[in-house]
Amino acid sequence: MPEALTHYQNYRPFAGFLHFCFQSLKAHNNASRRASLNRAHDYLRLSSRPDLLQTHLQLNENLAQQKREWPHYDYGEGYFYQSLAELGVSGLRSTEARLNAYQLLDRVRDKAVLDIGCNAGFLSVSLAKVARHVTGFDVNPFLAALARTAAQALDRTNTEFLATGFEDAPLCGPYDVVMSLANHSTFDGQTRYNLQSFFDRCVSLLKPGGLFIFESHTPSFEGEGIAQVCGIISQRLNVKRRDLCNYGTYLDRGRTFIIAEHSKL
């Protein structure tokens, strides 16, 4: 990563592009390979968007610090898990595709939104274009820093990003919309809640009549446990829609997506 930073500090389009492409050849899995190629193409495209170079430097400084100091699983495989087209950032999962597939902009318009486990916050920052306010948090402090950098670069002042776990998050709900996108359990065990406690707190933070937006992990990780998760949600909320995602890459397809409403009674 320190070597990667030198390419942002001294921008050389083709030299940097070739370096990051070469890094992809040494990747240890498909996601890591994709992350390196995303970086390579984003870096080359900066030649037509020099106004974004300083922001990319700041974002990659955050990534470098994360690599040095965060001992847990890196969901972005060295680059970004989420994309943010407005800043010329590609991700392992397309934020723009998720916005469209789940019709998120329409669902959060003029509303106060909570994004649980927001990762780099790129989806939250995108929602802030139309939401009244978006609060996101992640237990990884370097991801929260990425979110704040992105929000500042796009002047999304109606956002707040906290570095905290869900159990300790000082949240000022209730919210019109609570989103739990692929984080009710974690690969790296960074949660103390069991499923019952997790969804109980989600409901407690939701206004009567508010929306709960849920996305599962990939089927390979979720397994048959998704039936229990869906059952817990349906016990607490009025499920309005349940679908399987059929867009994007292997990291997107097959995930369960739920829209549920908090009863006003």
Rank of each mutant, 00 (worst) to 15 (best):
L143M: 12
D252F: 06
L87N: 08
A112K: 14
A35M: 10
A35N: 09
L154P: 05
D188T: 03
P208F: 01
I226H: 05
P13H: 09
Y102C: 14
D168F: 10
Q103D: 15
F17P: 02
A15C: 05
T95M: 04
G91K: 10
H133V: 06
H133P: 10
S90E: 13
G173H: 03
L84E: 01
G254E: 02
A112R: 15
R201F: 06
H7T: 01
A260L: 05
S94K: 09
V177T: 06
R33W: 08
G173D: 03
G117I: 05
E86A: 15
A40Y: 07
E160F: 00
F161A: 11
L46G: 14
V239M: 01
S90H: 14
C118I: 13
R12V: 13
G248E: 04
M179E: 02
D110P: 01
D243H: 11
G165H: 02
T218I: 10
A144P: 03
S180M: 04
E224F: 00
V89E: 01
A128K: 03
L92Q: 10
L37G: 00
N238F: 04
A147K: 06
L114W: 08
C202G: 03
L162A: 03
V113K: 04
F80Y: 12
K264G: 13
N60R: 09
A101C: 02
P141K: 00
T164H: 05
S48R: 15
F198E: 08
G136T: 09
N38H: 09
Y193H: 12
Q82N: 06
D106E: 15
H184G: 07
Y250L: 08
N119M: 08
N140G: 12
G225C: 02
L37N: 10
L87H: 11
A153P: 02
L162W: 05
R236C: 07
T55N: 10
A147H: 11
L162Y: 06
L244T: 14
N60I: 07
A145P: 00
L5R: 08
F161C: 04
S90R: 13
S220T: 09
R242Q: 15
F137K: 03
V239D: 00
S32N: 07
E61G: 07
A40R: 09
S126M: 01
A153E: 08
V108R: 03
G225D: 09
V108H: 06
N100P: 00
R132I: 00
L44T: 10
L84M: 12
P219A: 10
L123H: 02
I233S: 02
E77A: 15
A101N: 02
S216F: 00
L211M: 03
L59A: 14
E96V: 06
P71R: 01
